[in-house]
Design a protein around this nucleic acid. Structure first.
Length: 279
DNA sequence: TTGTGTTTTATTGCCTCC
DNA sequence: GGAGGCAATAAAACACAA
């Protein structure tokens, strides 16, 4: 191999691996005869390698050549013609070999860069995935919690509805007794099925809602101008708990005797337009 | 020693730039 | 159109387990 020591790259090379002459003189001082013979054999191999290189058979570059090329590559990963020629001369290679080495080295560098980028992107992806999974779990937990709460609410509604009917009935009975104005108060559910004793006007005071359902009424049957009416069997209206209240019923009722059944139908949701229209 | 996988060197074909 | 770069690939060299 042709060795020169005039350029910067060669200086760097000499720093890493001392020149052969220097190595030989040191070796002769240090090593035994047997080991020296082995080293001589290796040198002979090196010489044969150089001959092989001359016959154009594909050979790997020597360690020193590769080190020098690597060092140059670190400085600049592309070759200008002058640098290529100089490197080829310094390392005893053909300019084409130097060019090919740089070409392949760039390809390896690019692959390494892609691997690094992949690692970075993968770690970012992993972080995001972790976050996504966590949020997905939170979402599932919230969804099931919502379902539970809905079921609970539904259950509570049905319970309070049936309970309020009982409460309504007992309160109604008590209120009827207190006011003593309603006939048929022996009816346990408090429903007065028929009342045709004259005109009556209803004044309704809902406690917590703007409308409610009325399934029964009680009208005047005595001498008093004011009679009491309890809209019952309606505990929750528009999501609010309805506190059953007595409603004062005055004479001059707007209903005809035929109207009540229609108006008080359970199936039909009354709008109470009749009431609000008069306000 | 050998089979196999990996690395390195070199080739080919295509593309871009001057 | 030639020089040079790049991707794909061939082929030699090398590493290593069985």
């Amino acid at each position: 191999m042709k060795q020169t020591s005039s350029s910067g790259s060669q200086d760097a090379l000499n720093f890493i691996v001392p020149p052969k002459e220097e190595m030989n003189s040191k070796r002769k001082q240090i090593y035994s005869r047997d080991f020296q013979a082995l080293l001589d054999d290796l040198e002979e191999e090196d010489r044969l390698e150089e001959v092989d290189q001359a016959t154009e058979k594909k050979r790997r570059l020597s360690v020193n050549q590769v080190k020098a090329l690597e060092k140059n590559f670190e400085l600049e990963n592309k070759l200008d013609p002058e640098r290529k020629l100089r490197l080829a001369e310094e390392l005893g290679l053909q300019t084409r070999q130097v060019a090919i080495w740089f070409q392949n080295r760039r390809a390896r560098w690019k692959t390494k860069q892609l691997e690094k980028e992949y690692v970075v992107l993968k770690s970012k992806y992993d972080v995001l995935k972790l976050d996504y999974d966590k949020r997905e779990q939170e979402k599932q937990a919230l969804a099931s919690e919502l379902t539970e709460l809905k079921a609970k609410l539904k259950e509570e509604n049905s319970e309070s509805s049936s309970q309020s009917v009982k409460e309504d009935s007992s309160k109604f009975s008590q209120q009827i007794k207190d006011h003593g104005s309603c006939e048929n108060d022996d009816d346990s559910n408090g429903i007065v099925k028929e009342e045709r004793s004259g005109n009556a006007q209803m004044l309704i005071s809902p406690s917590s809602s703007s409308s409610f359902q009325i399934n029964g009424y009680c009208s005047s049957s005595g001498s008093s101008n004011h009679h009491w009416f309890l809209p019952f069997e309606t505990s929750t209206i528009l999501g609010n708990k309805y506190q059953p209240q007595l409603v004062k019923v005055e004479e001059q009722c707007v209903f005809t005797p035929e109207e009540p059944y229609n108006f008080l139908s359970v199936d039909q949701a009354p709008t109470l337009q009749w009431y609000f229209a008069r306000q």
